[in-house]
Design a protein around this nucleic acid. Structure first.
Lengths: 215, 215
DNA sequence: CGTACTTGTTACTTGCGGTAACAGCAGTCT
DNA sequence: AGACTGCTGTTACCGCAAGTAACAAGTACG
């Protein structure tokens, strides 16, 4: 029967694909994002052309690899966003979830956020600033914006405001987390509380320092 | 006279260096960060080894090139931070300065923020997540943290809080700016006002949407 | 059986980062 | 004058990684 054969082939191909992705993951986690296609192929027990047949080119493989992790991380964040408690509790839980994720697997984090993307391979020559480099940031920003828009009443332009805040808050989390992960200047808990304080407007309430011209 | 010669040579070398940097800048602005050393050398009217004598390796050249722009941008931001008006005015002025900078020269922005950094060239194999990739973000965060610490009284742990906020606010500005630059979903003014609202605690004040479980 | 398709190979091209090795051209020291 | 130093610049190469033919084998289908 033809369709049976075809389907067998299709699922077999998919399984092979995930096997290759797992091999690639092992290498990337060991050698960092600059892992070569040869190394990945060797780890998978095969040779380069097969990788190319499955993923087109290197950035294709990397995109496939990134998608798994971004999906997982986004699911984690979504569930933290749905955790019990008041608004502040939820925000803190989400920050904790993010920081905990990047803390326990810094190699994965580095791969997702600082991908290297060797040849850029744009094709079209538009000014598409920042389209390929860190899709995770964008997706997180969009997702958070949607959640905010769903749950908060922000007056007219509610959706627009929610999107801006989504990207802004995600960026805050990202930059603070990146810095924290590199320098470890304080405990995770302290970082979370201080960032939440920032979102809660403590910046507005702080007094000017004596002798300063005021911020 | 020896010192005269030495000094002539030194200044001549420095002038040559800036000439090479200017050529590199032209190429990078034309071809993006993936510009090859050959292309840069050709633009400067010379060949590769000279570039290597001056800058050591590619990342050396890129660092030298980046330093000029980061210094310039940081100076702009510092002066916006010192602009007249109340605290809110200063924050908005700074956001405007940043967004205006990335808007008018997106190629420079892309080069600074998404450098590509081909071989990673770590040397030491530590888990130095995110040390080379976007020094600008780190520097902006540190600088803003210092300014906040100088000017605001944040109680005990003041310096720590200020640093965290510095990196957080810079990250907010960065991610929102990157997204805005790519999609242009609203005017610069609206973006600035909405981000300032976020910092001013409007997130805390917003009411839950009917039918939602509350954020 | 031949046809078609998938999996795999070896061997190649192209291009880039980086490095010898060498040549010329100041000015300096003896 | 002539040897030494230090700069500018070259050509020609190495090593390596991305990506691509071209070809070999197994296997379901008519």
């Amino acid at each position: 029967m033809e369709t049976g054969h075809r389907q067998d082939q299709r699922t077999a191909t998919e399984r092979r694909r995930t096997e290759l992705l797992e091999a690639a993951e092992r290498v990337v986690l060991r050698d960092g994002p600059e892992a070569s296609m040869n190394a990945i192929a060797a780890e998978a027990g095969i040779t380069k052309p097969i990788l190319y047949r499955h993923f087109g080119d290197k950035s294709g493989l990397y995109r496939a690899l990134a998608k798994r992790h971004t999906d997982a991380l986004l699911a984690t964040l979504r569930s933290a966003l749905d955790s019990p408690g008041d608004r502040r509790d939820r925000v803190e839980a989400t920050l904790h979830a993010y920081l905990s994720a990047i803390e326990t697997r810094p190699q994965v984090y580095r791969f997702l956020m600082h991908p290297a993307e060797t040849p850029a391979a744009d094709g079209e020559k538009g000014f598409d600033v920042g389209r390929h480099q860190a899709p995770l940031l964008r997706r997180m920003g969009e997702d958070l914006g949607e959640v905010i828009a769903e749950r908060l009443d922000l007056g007219p332009d509610s959706r627009q405001v929610a999107r801006i805040w989504g990207h802004g808050i995600v960026g805050m989390m990202f930059a603070a987390g990146d810095w924290w992960l590199g320098e470890r200047p304080c405990s995770r808990d302290e970082l979370v509380r201080t960032l939440a304080d920032l979102l809660w407007g403590r910046l507005t309430l702080a007094g000017d320092r004596a002798g300063s011209q005021g911020l």
